[in-house]
Write a protein that binds this DNA or RNA. Structure first.
Length: 621
RNA sequence: GGGGGCGUGGUGUAGCCUGGCUCAACACACCUGCCUGUCACGCAGGAGAUCGCGGGUUCAAAUCCCGUCGCUCCCGCCA
């Protein structure tokens, strides 16, 4: 019953309760910590603690004032416990509790007691007990929050972002941050144990155009010149290999000034790794072990290794994408040979011009209406298909506009090729082989959603043997698919000048549930090979010298064969947290228009700062 | 750069197509009073939105039209 020295309870009447928190502060209704110290966290107490004197602190989740009895659910990051204040037994504490509101920060001294029989709450881990308050101190009053601090609420994301510090109070958001931390810690521990050292690389670096747009940082000391923020530490980690570091890693922020998506932020975090004296298999094996270790440490789940591997060509043909979701089947199947010679003109024309006919078998979708099929066709068309040919399968046979043109033998062959059963829906696309697969790949994802085929669990896969080069969309010149330091596959080297598009790279992407987690490659480590590739890319020697001179110089002094990988850490946390947006696993993310609704960034700066940076703002065009 | 969705008290929504019967309804939250076993506390009462913003059409606009801003999903873009 002894209140600690300095403890004061408000004696103010009802009128004071209507005051603002600021007014309460002024009126001395809130207290300092004094000599009170927390003895337990709020999720920790159990029946075995009954009788213990405890001091708890936290936020008021809710207050239930029954008149003769006040209950307070006290929340901290560990959990929730019920505090009881009895006006009869402890009038001072009850008076203090009367003034308390949602999200007030309070401290409670009291005794752990078993709840009376019949009043236990099985939904709370602490539901067998409660804390009988002897004294209660308001540490900080709070305005009514703009949205309830509970999980499962549906609140506009803009409001959540403006009050991110409140949003992060929600247990699920805290869990995301914990998961993120645990994964990062597990990755660090794993790599350290494998002989990797974490080395920091500069954030103010030289622009090396190509790739994404850079964020610019003006130089005060060098008028008219700029640093840029790194899109990745790519060149530095290669230089660390030249430096003999052999095994480098870094969990590092990267910056790209491109348009945003649910899985793309202007600043994001990579797990960046580089190793010397290895081939692709070693990098892949290490990455697998690292990911499996991190998932085991952070979530306690076993991830079997090795992960399956698909070549880029296979992935594109069978899934129509270079980041296939392998949680379900429904692969794209080529059936050009089966429909060749049928009377269906759309197919005949496509095949005659070197195209292909490919399709999907949507299980159980044979009953789809005309309208539903039209929606699917819209998806396919948006993905580049010329059209979509449905074949509805039922016990009697096939329905659909193409059925009679195809004829019974071709239809029977199709059913067998797709492994189709009555009640299924075949969806066929004619066109250039790759385009047909890509359109069907989009359709595959849409259908999987509609049909509920996406199972739970984690489907990791590697996609390997990417092409080294691709034609740039604008001018048709060659550009690097991965980056210009990626080594070609040795057996394809003879093709480099003659048939560059057929050259495959020693590159690999890691995909999880259809999300590209990241990728890497074995790098070119000899200057001659690098020059040869620059020549193929049409990068003149003087341009190469200007942009990458330091790297080329470094390669003259003995560069080890090396390779590595960069994994998008935010995406990894996102998928493992079961989220659809990386904003859910970033403490303070930006909106799709790259603004920070809480701080107001980006914002104008002081004219003097501009002047010092030698920047003049052009009148808006 | 382009396409789609959303924007109504603090929060989430209804109303919008088919303008007037709505100076806007419901739930939660909030405020006041009552209440000794609540945990979605209950009961009674109350306050709170000129419907993102601007313009237009109309006798009349949350509702129709144009523009604009914000959030979001996607295409382009992201070596």
């Amino acid at each position: 019953m002894s209140a600690a020295p300095g403890f004061c309870t408000p004696d103010d009447g009802p009128a004071a309760r209507a005051q603002t928190p600021a007014a309460r502060e002024g009126a001395g209704m809130t207290g300092e910590l004094g000599d009170w110290r927390r003895t337990h966290t709020n999720g920790a107490l159990r029946l075995s603690d009954v009788g213990r004197e405890v001091t708890l602190m936290g936020w008021v989740q809710s207050r239930r004032d029954l008149g003769g009895l006040i209950f307070i659910d006290l929340r901290d990051r560990d959990g929730i416990v019920q505090v009881v204040c009895s006006p009869q037994e402890v009038p001072a504490a009850a008076r203090a509790a009367e003034a308390v509101r949602s999200e007030y920060v309070i401290a409670v001294q009291g005794v752990v007691a078993a709840r009376p029989a019949g009043t236990e709450n099985p939904r709370l881990p602490t539901g067998q007990i409660e804390v009988r308050a002897r004294a209660l101190r308001v540490l900080a009053a709070a305005e009514t929050p703009p949205f309830p601090i509970v999980d499962g609420g549906d609140v506009d994301e803009a409001v959540r972002l403006r009050y991110r510090y409140l949003d992060l109070r929600r247990p699920s958001m805290y869990r995301h941050l914990v998961l993120r931390h645990r994964l990062a810690a597990a990755i660090r521990n794993f790599l350290a144990a494998e002989g990797f050292i974490e080395v920091e690389t500069p954030m103010l670096i030289k622009s090396t155009p190509e790739g994404a747009r850079d964020f610019l940082v003006p130089s005060r000391l060098h008028p008219g010149k700029f640093y840029v923020l790194p899109q990745s530490p790519q060149l530095f980690k290669q230089l660390l290999m030249v430096a003999g570091i052999e095994r480098y890693f870094q969990i590092v922020r990267c910056f790209r000034d491109e348009d945003l998506r649910a899985d793309r932020q202007p600043e994001f975090t990579q797990v960046d790794i580089e190793m010397s004296f290895v081939g692709a298999d070693e990098v892949i094996a290490l990455s697998e072990r690292m990911v499996a270790h991190a998932v085991r440490e952070a979530l306690g789940h076993h991830v079997p290794t090795p992960f399956p591997r698909l070549t880029y060509a296979e992935a594109m043909d069978r899934y129509g994408t270079d980041k296939p979701d392998l949680r379900f089947g429904m692969e794209v199947v080529d059936c050009s040979d089966l429909v060749r010679g049928t009377e269906f003109r759309v197919f005949a024309q496509a095949l005659a011009s070197g195209g292909a006919v490919r399709g999907l078998c949507a299980p159980g979708a044979g009953g789809y209406s005309r309208r539903e099929v039209a929606e699917l066709e819209a998806v396919a068309r948006a993905a580049g298909a010329g059209g979509l040919v449905p074949v509805h399968l039922d016990l009697e046979g096939s329905r659909g506009p193409a059925s009679r043109f195809l004829g019974p033998p071709a239809l029977a062959a199709l059913r067998e090729r797709f492994g189709a059963r009555p009640g299924d829906l075949l969806l066929l696309v004619a066109g250039a082989p790759r385009e047909a697969s890509v359109a069907l790949g989009r359709l595959r994802l849409e259908l999987a959603r509609r049909l509920g085929l996406v199972g739970s669990g984690w489907a990791f896969t590697w996609v390997v043997e990417f092409p080294l080069l691709e034609p740039a969309p604008e001018d048709g010149r060659l550009s690097a698919v991965h980056h210009p330091f990626t080594a070609p596959m040795e057996e394809d080297l003879p093709l480099l000048e003659a048939e560059p598009l057929r050259v495959r790279a020693q590159a690999y992407d890691l995909v999880l549930n259809g999300v590209e987690l990241g990728g890497g490659s074995i790098r070119i480590h000899r200057r001659e090979m690098q020059s040869r590739l620059f020549a193929v890319l049409g990068i003149a020697p003087d341009v190469a010298r200007d942009r990458f001179g330091f790297l080329l110089d470094a390669f003259q002094y003995g560069a080890p064969p090396h390779g590595g990988i960069a994994l998008g850490f935010d995406r990894m946390v996102m998928v493992l947290a079961g989220q659809e947006s990386i904003r859910e696993v970033i403490a303070f993310p930006k909106t799709q228009s790259a603004t920070d609704l809480m701080t107001g960034a980006p914002s104008p700066v002081d004219p003097r700062a501009l002047e010092e940076a030698h920047i003049q703002i052009r009148r808006s065009s």
